[in-house]
Write a protein that binds this DNA or RNA. Structure first.
Lengths: 173, 173
DNA sequence: CTTCATGCAAAAGATTTGCAAGTTC
DNA sequence: GAACTTGCAAATCTTTTGCATGAAG
């Protein structure tokens, strides 16, 4: 559980974005697909987001940036971004489909409180190592992972002990 | 990675189901809700399923068992089953919303091949222990978890090395 | 220029909700 | 009996598709 570095910069010149775009371009080339303005803008928007986000947020982002983003285009691009390892599906407790950046960030997984919905991010190198071991044992190369722990935070436990029913059953971020 | 015990029985007398029902009843009581036939049947159906399943499968199951199951009723019950810790949301790579039993089964997590969609279940005690440690460190009591590893299986890697584009990009179970 | 990508709008699915009628406590 | 549930159908939301028009290589 070490601290997370933060290399993000405001503009569109984030080196992380550039690298991701390259990677994306490579995937597209392999598939005889084109790196269009729209697709590049989607990568940009995706990497600029923090944490989990619903698909529609990307559509809104594009609109805001002047690109007449179309829902359909975003939906069509998502599987490509995922395959390129730039995005990764993420869900926390029944919410609608969400994604999160999977590239250029340190890994971070989630600990979700079932009582109040609070989400804590964590990183644990030892777990990452064991994951690689599991993958290797099955002949897999590990590319990504998703790991969520569900439980009760201290506050919600105290509340329960006091005989009070917890508030919002589920509404994780 | 030990073997999974299998205590499931065909009929409706599975002791696991009985315990789950009790737990469910307790939750309902707390909330001044009623344990109706429909809700009990949904618990039963949910626990009888193996692995991940789409919501509609539960609806079909009810129909099959003679209960004139209604989609709406199932949808309305799902958050309750989740809160009771009987079901748990599960998604593998962009598929539609799915659930899986979270009660009375040994933990099992998934290793998914991004090339061909193959899914391998795994269990790794060491990881479970570390998870508990992470939760404890943040003051959480761990109730459940979801852990998925994504990568490439041996076959798909060989295929890629041979310069062939992999088949179905994503369609994990 | 040929092929692939985009937008729009329509289609398909998935989930939620209103309400009269049926159940549970 | 009163309060909570259910089913159905209609309303919403989300995601996918068809197709004519606009870019990319």
């Amino acid at each position: 559980m070490r601290l997370r570095r933060n290399t993000a910069r405001p503009g569109g010149t984030d080196p992380r974005h550039a690298t991701a775009l390259e990677r994306f371009a490579r995937l597209l080339a392999e598939k005889d697909l084109r790196l269009t303005k729209a697709r590049a803008a989607i990568v940009e928007a995706a990497l600029s987001r923090n944490g989990h986000f619903p698909i529609d947020d990307l559509v809104q982002d594009l609109r805001r940036r002047g690109i007449r983003g179309s829902k359909a285009t975003v939906y069509r691009a998502l599987p490509l971004l995922t395959e390129a390892g730039i995005l990764q599906p993420a869900v926390a407790q029944g919410d609608a489909r969400r994604y999160e950046a999977a590239f250029g960030r340190d890994h971070h997984d989630h600990l979700v409180c079932r009582g109040c919905g609070k989400v804590v991010e964590f990183e644990y190198e030892a777990i990452e190592i064991l994951q690689r071991e599991v993958a290797a044992r099955h002949g897999f190369t590990l590319e990504a992972h998703q790991h969520q722990l569900f439980g009760r935070c201290e506050a919600c436990r105290a509340q329960a002990d006091a005989g009070v029913a917890p508030r919002r059953p589920l509404s994780a971020n």
